[in-house]
Each structure stands twice: as structure tokens, then as C-alpha cells.
């Protein structure tokens, strides 16, 4: 598709020196390592694949039921089941070698040492373009979110990870805080190269017929279109609080949602739960964004970032 000047609009964005062919990424935990969706989506078209959270050792996750649908969204309490960083490197990263897309590895842990172990193991790997540090998962008892709801803890873990990380670091923030601006500033002060938000909002669903919790974990993270306006507001606030790039996510279900997030201040966006509703959603979002730029006579998507003040 071409604009008035006859050129295709430029969809590329740059975060911490890493150039992405377009701003559309996958939300960690909703796309496996890309392998699971490679039969549905041309991974080469994506700005980046953001992989499922990986820890230093395998994690079994929570008991089932782990997922529940709610109006316009879903709750999950997977509990970060993952095979650990060694299997991840051998199998999942090796799989991604064949694709022309950036790879952002989401890292989780129960202690700072756990995070550092994973970050150190990934340091020498050329296939890893960036790290996304999950300090915002509401579904594990220790670690994870504990580091993301207190500005001092967030500052400390960011600083420690930055000391050992070879790749640029994105801190993934939780919306379950009083002030997202304060948390964004703490991550920036700790040296984060970028922040991503929002992770899921903590929710609960009760089965009224059985008079019991639907999720075995009782609470779960709410995602999907239902949370999109909350995410736009928080991306806007965070983008105004810090100078580092913001990756916006939370209920993106269409190109309009993605453009909205960028107008609010995001440099890139991630599509999460909607991958389940439409495995080809990411490609549709990319196509729709390009069409939007053409219709508005905009040469580069970078010029819409934060355009609505």
C-alpha cells in the first residue's frame, strides 16, 4: 500500500537501539515461543515475538482450572508454567533462529538471584534482542509481582539486572498499583531501557451455581478488550512520566486499539489475549496500521507516537 508520495509508509520503530520492522509484538504468555502459532501466523511479519516467561528452573504453574472467560475478556492464573531457561534456549530459541523477527525474552523469578541466573544465561545469545523482566505477574505467590508493586524494590531489581544484562532491558509493569507514573519513574531511575505495560489486572470470578471460585487460584489476571481503556490511560500517564520508550499493551483487539495506544505515547504495542480469539490478529493489526498511515498521509508511524497530548 502506498501513500500520496508513492512510497509505502515506514512502520519501523526503534527501542534502545533495536530496530523493529513494525511496532506490533506479541504479549508474553499469549503466544508461547511463537512455535505454537507458527502454523497460523507468518512470524516473519511481526515486529517481535515476546516469549512466554522463562525462569532459571522449570516451574509447574498453578492447579487447574487456570482460565475463565469473562465479559469481553478472560482471567488466567497459569502461574508461569515453563520448562526453564536451559530447555528454552535449546528448543524455543533455536526454533526462532529461522525467523526474521526480533526476539524479546520475558524473564521471571522468585528472587533477584533467580532473575539474574536467567539474564546471565541469555547474555551471550545473539538471537535474544531484548529482555522483558516480568515483575508483574499476579499469579505466583513469591517474587514476580512483589518486585513490581513497590518503587524501591522495582528500582533495586532493575539496577541489579542492568548490571549483568547484555541486551537492553524492558521492565514490564503491573497496573495493580496506586501510581503507575511512580513505578515507571522507578524503573527508569534503575536504568531500564524501556518499560512495557500493562500486565493483567487482578480479578476474580465466582460460579454462582456451584458457589465456588472458578479458578483454582481464586484470583487471576484479567486481560482482553475489557481492560483496554485502563491500559490506554496508564500508557499515557507512564509515557508522560518517563523519557524511555513505552511498549503499550492491554486488550488490543484491532488496529484502532494499537494506533490509540501509540497516540497515547507507546513506541510499540503488544497483542495478547486476542491471539486466542483470532490467531491472525497481529497480521491484521499491522495491515490496518499501514492503511491508517496511508489514509492520513503519514510517512512514518514514529510521528504518531504520543501525538495526543
Amino acid at each position: 500500500m502506498k501513500n500520496d508520495t508513492g512510497r509505502r509508509p515506514d512502520l519501523s520503530v526503534v527501542i534502545a537501539g533495536v530496530e523493529f520492522k513494525n511496532p506490533v509484538m506479541t504479549g508474553s504468555g499469549t503466544f508461547g515461543s511463537g512455535m505454537e502459532y507458527a502454523e497460523f501466523v507468518d512470524l516473519n511479519r511481526l515486529g517481535a515475538v515476546v516469549t512466554k516467561g522463562v525462569s532459571n528452573v522449570p516451574w509447574p504453574g498453578n492447579p487447574t482450572p487456570r482460565v475463565a472467560e469473562v465479559y469481553g475478556g478472560m482471567l488466567n492464573a497459569i502461574g508461569l508454567q515453563n520448562p526453564g531457561v536451559d530447555v528454552f534456549i535449546e528448543r524455543d530459541l533455536a526454533f526462532l533462529e529461522d525467523y526474521d523477527t526480533k526476539v524479546i525474552v520475558n524473564v521471571c523469578g522468585k528472587s533477584i538471584r533467580d532473575y539474574l541466573d536467567v539474564v546471565e544465561k541469555l547474555a551471550d545469545l545473539k538471537r535474544v534482542d531484548m529482555l522483558e523482566i516480568n515483575v508483574s505477574c499476579p499469579n505466583v505467590k513469591e517474587g514476580a509481582i512483589a518486585f513490581g508493586v513497590n518503587a524501591d524494590s522495582l528500582f533495586e531489581i532493575t539496577q541489579k539486572i542492568k548490571r549483568v544484562a547484555a541486551q537492553p532491558v524492558i521492565m514490564k509493569l503491573t497496573p495493580n498499583v496506586t501510581s503507575i507514573s511512580e513505578m515507571a519513574k522507578a524503573a527508569e531511575a534503575g536504568g531500564a531501557d524501556a518499560i512495557s505495560l500493562i500486565n493483567t489486572l487482578t480479578g476474580m470470578k465466582i460460579d454462582v451455581e456451584r458457589q465456588s471460585f472458578v479458578l483454582a487460584n481464586k484470583t487471576g489476571g484479567l486481560s482482553g478488550p475489557a481492560i483496554h481503556p485502563v491500559a490506554v490511560r496508564m500508557v499515557y500517564e507512564a509515557a508522560h512520566a518517563v523519557g524511555i520508550p513505552v511498549i503499550g499493551m492491554g486488550g488490543i483487539a484491532s488496529w484502532e486499539d494499537a494506533v490509540e495506544m501509540m497516540l497515547a505515547g507507546a513506541t510499540a504495542v503488544a497483542v495478547g489475549a486476542m491471539n486466542f480469539a483470532d490467531p491472525r490478529i497481529t497480521e491484521k493489526v499491522i495491515d490496518g496500521m499501514e492503511d491508517y498511515l496511508v489514509r492520513h498521509g503519514i510517512d512514518s508511524i514514529r510521528s504518531i507516537i504520543g501525538a495526543v497530548k
Partner: peptide, 23 residues
Amino acid sequence: ACGVGACLGCVVKTAGEDPHSHV
């Protein structure tokens, strides 16, 4: 949720190591 093995929502405990997460 996903139905295709990505979200890890629908697991069952297995006697041996599972091929995906080894847990």
C-alpha cells in the same frame, strides 16, 4: 483458552515428564 498449546491453561498432571515444560 487458546486450544493450540500456547497458553498452558488446560494441563493435566502426568506420571512422566511432559514434552513441553518437563514439569
